[in-house]
């Protein structure tokens, strides 16, 4: 790819990444949430890979890392949900933190935490899928 494309992508994907983070963290206030934001974050990484390309060895390492991230993130979501069985209303998936004021950034109990970890899970899952396709095409379908 030409230098212009690379520079432009570098700038753009930073913006996309930040926007993804904004959507994740404000999921309980504005439209969007863990899913939309997670897909955006994954999209910024995918843009980078598309523009810069990368050798297969590096990609394989990233694939392992993103799949581990994915498993850990969803495990944390499950643990957050299980904690509800012992705290507050003593039920699975219970919202056991202080609610706070509706409309504030730090409010809505566990929901922001769920949003963050679900966003992480979605981002790394999509990245894993994309990397699996790219590695497969590079190695097998030359």
């Amino acid at each position: 790819m030409s230098k212009i494309v690379k520079t432009a992508t570098g700038l753009l994907c930073g913006v996309v990444f930040m926007y993804g983070l904004y959507i994740i963290t404000h999921g309980h206030l504005t439209p969007g949430g863990g899913f939309a934001g997670g897909v955006l974050v994954a999209g910024s990484f995918i843009l980078l890979i598309l523009a810069y390309g990368s050798d297969v060895l590096m990609l394989r390492k990233e694939e392992t890392e993103s799949s581990v991230t994915e498993s850990s993130a969803i495990l944390i979501v499950l643990i957050l949900a299980v904690i509800g069985m012992f705290a507050g209303g003593a039920a699975f998936m219970n919202n056991y933190f202080q609610f706070g004021e509706v409309g504030e950034l730090i409010s809505a109990g566990v929901i922001p935490l769920y949003n963050i970890f679900i966003g992480m899970e979605v981002a790394s899952a999509l990245l894993t899928i994309f990397l699996a396709f790219v590695i497969y095409k590079k190695e097998v379908l030359k």
Binding site: S67, V68, S71, S72, I74, L75, L78, V82, M85, A90, F92
Partner: peptide, 21 residues
């Protein structure tokens, strides 16, 4: 009563743990 949910949590939890450990 609380054990009912374990039928879902336990296999899910092991599925999430296996790729990590």
């Amino acid at each position: 009563d609380n054990l009912v949910i374990l039928f879902v949590i336990v296999p899910l939890g092991s599925a999430f743990l296996i790729p990590i450990i």
